[in-house]
Design a binder for these strands. Structure first.
Lengths: 131, 131
DNA sequence: CGGGATCCGGCACGATACTG
DNA sequence: CAGTATCGTGCCGGATCCCG
């Protein structure tokens, strides 16, 4: 896995071993920054689960979130092309949110991360899970 | 992909479709929180690339990082079981950092993320990459 | 109902200086 | 060399009030 020689640029294969540490780091960091935020994951998973949700539905589905944060993180996700917003010009406003195709496409990656996290060996300093 | 029925608990398979939105979200969020931080990715990728590095080597490899941030994020990573620290009782102190097995194990997940990020369709609001 | 603006507090981040 | 201590700051997240 490890490599010691230099690589010229950003590998289109996306393999970590093919890019320099800084390039790979910045690439993954960029992806991370899109997803970091107290509520983005919750939003994403709810949309992944329900496919399409209105603002108020999301608000109710996520207890503890403020409208500001909800709208803010939704905007971010929208701006990053992860979620789509559909507005209906109605008397009671109606806005639907759903994942974009690309947004759906990140689920395997999240899967990997979830699996990795689940494989965590009980750290030596962890509190023993006694009864 | 989508599921509508309820799931009882945390799926050992780690598949997103097998867990409730909140569980999956919290799981991935937990993983994310371990990796978020201005320098963690850079550290991880450098260690992944070089396998083992001393403190000063990391410091030199990562321009712009302060000792405080470096040590802090290294501590976090160590506490989370992602990196290992090896101290040599010498007159000039010598400490080596490397990824744990589990830390290495997350690279496929980062790969997925990198790949996903690379697949991003040019967003409609993106500045046209003109000459 | 959906969206926004403003104010505020905490903490991540960072610069600098000091120590074993 | 490998940290620690202290101080400062910006930005994130939250409460509250306001608008279409």
């Amino acid at each position: 896995m490890a490599r010691t020689d230099k690589i010229v640029g950003y590998s289109p294969t996306g393999k970590l071993a093919d890019v320099t540490p800084d390039l790979a780091a910045s690439g993954v960091e960029t992806a991370f920054r899109m997803l970091e935020g107290r509520w983005k994951m919750v939003i994403i998973f709810h949309l992944f689960d329900r496919q399409v949700l209105r603002f108020s539905e999301l608000e109710r589905a996520i207890p503890g979130v403020s409208q500001k944060m909800l709208i803010q993180q939704l905007r971010d996700l929208e701006r990053d092309g992860i979620v789509e917003r559909q507005i209906y010009a109605q008397v009671p406003p109606k806005v639907e949110y759903r994942l974009t195709d690309w947004g759906q496409a990140m689920c395997p990656a999240l899967d990997s991360l979830l699996e990795w996290a689940a494989q965590k060996p009980a750290s030596p300093a962890d509190p023993a899970p006694a009864a």
